[in-house]
Simulated scan of single mutants.
Amino acid sequence: MTYSCDEVLKAFRNETETVIPISFWRHFAESEFIDGLQHPEVIQLNLAGHKKFIDETQPDFVKTMSDGYFAYPFLNVTDRTSLSDWRSLETLPEGHPWLSGQYDLAVAQNKLAGKRPTFYTIFSPMILFKWALINHETEPLTLSDHRFADFYEENPVIVKQVLFKIAQDLKKLIRIVLKSGIEGIYYSTQSIQDYRVDNKEFFEDIMEAVDLEVQEEIKRCFDLNILHICGFAGATNHLEWFTNYPLQVINWATDVDGYSLAQGKKLFGDRPVLGGFGNDSKSILYSGTKSEIQAEAKRIVAEAGRRGVIIGADCTIPRDTPIEHLQWAIEAVHQL
């Protein structure tokens, strides 16, 4: 069943819905951290994966994956283990392929989505910075948080400078993908998972400041956008700290951060909300029967309501989630 773009976007505008939009998303490359500038075949895997996934699930909107561009270039930083070397970080020139390549990717993904609204994924400066601090082939992702906290303890001034330089390049990227035909941006941010920076002072002075720098540009360029407060792999966030963030639609880990869709909608001043399903291998979406998955879909809608409510998952679903599970969830929501 295909709905018009205007019918789907009623939920994003916080209007009473004639259609309850639903969509899911996943990675398609073997690893999302493979550098697409060095391995352009990853970009082709990205596009082929999106086409197959859209054809099979028929979502109401498309939240695309930027696999191949997780590796921000960090110009002029030769030793990423030395914080002093980060002082030399240079912003990207306007024509850098990390920027222009994402325009090409967004154009191609938007074409694959057809008439569906498309939201392109951009990660926060802090996420891009911490990801650069580990070897993704040999070290666990959580180690990146601890190394970021080490750097911050060593010299918070350098860390802040790095984050705002990355923010300037993300603002360039936003202005570039504005011309691709997409509906808006899906902006992913996440607190550092280390007790040394898990406090309100760090959040307000560093994280919120740099996130707002990027989000104000997103809001200036696009009318409808999604704020993703990432709870992937059990990461936790103080959801109540994010209420000053200005993006229009809010997506978070309902299973982890302690707020249902209805509770989160109230917390964020009645803004539209997205999510409801868990996104790990223990979730109903991953392991449930058809009746269990469809009952859960109906429960989420009954609890959250039919104004400004968009159904999806807490975050990216596992690669091996059975397609029919997604089809069952979509079918159940469409029946409502």
Rank of each mutant, 00 (worst) to 15 (best):
108 A>W: 02
242 F>T: 00
178 L>R: 15
72 Y>F: 03
112 L>W: 09
276 G>M: 03
241 W>R: 06
300 I>G: 05
31 S>E: 10
157 V>H: 14
173 L>D: 06
87 R>D: 05
198 D>W: 10
38 Q>T: 05
22 I>L: 08
137 E>W: 11
293 I>H: 04
32 E>L: 07
164 F>I: 04
211 D>G: 03
18 T>K: 11
58 Q>S: 07
215 Q>C: 09
312 G>E: 10
132 A>L: 01
75 L>E: 14
165 K>Y: 14
153 E>M: 12
263 Q>Y: 00
9 L>R: 03
332 A>R: 06
310 I>M: 02
287 S>M: 14
248 Q>L: 01
37 L>E: 08
62 V>W: 10
55 D>N: 15
108 A>R: 12
100 S>T: 15
131 W>C: 04
64 T>E: 09
85 D>Y: 03
38 Q>I: 04
216 E>L: 11
45 L>S: 15
37 L>P: 01
238 H>W: 00
200 K>Q: 02
254 T>S: 15
195 Y>V: 05
333 V>M: 05
229 I>G: 02
333 V>W: 02
269 G>V: 03
210 V>G: 08
287 S>T: 14
209 A>H: 09
160 K>M: 08
188 S>N: 12
286 Y>D: 15
73 P>N: 01
202 F>E: 01
79 D>R: 14
209 A>G: 05
27 H>P: 04
220 R>S: 12
305 G>K: 03
276 G>I: 03
267 L>H: 00
171 K>Y: 07
136 H>L: 04
265 K>I: 01
46 N>H: 06
277 F>M: 07
301 V>C: 01
185 I>Y: 06
3 Y>Q: 03
205 D>E: 12
172 K>N: 08
206 I>A: 11
81 T>F: 02
160 K>W: 07
37 L>M: 02
110 N>T: 11
52 K>R: 11
29 A>V: 13
18 T>D: 10
231 G>N: 03
152 Y>N: 14
9 L>W: 13
248 Q>H: 10
3 Y>K: 09
247 L>Q: 09
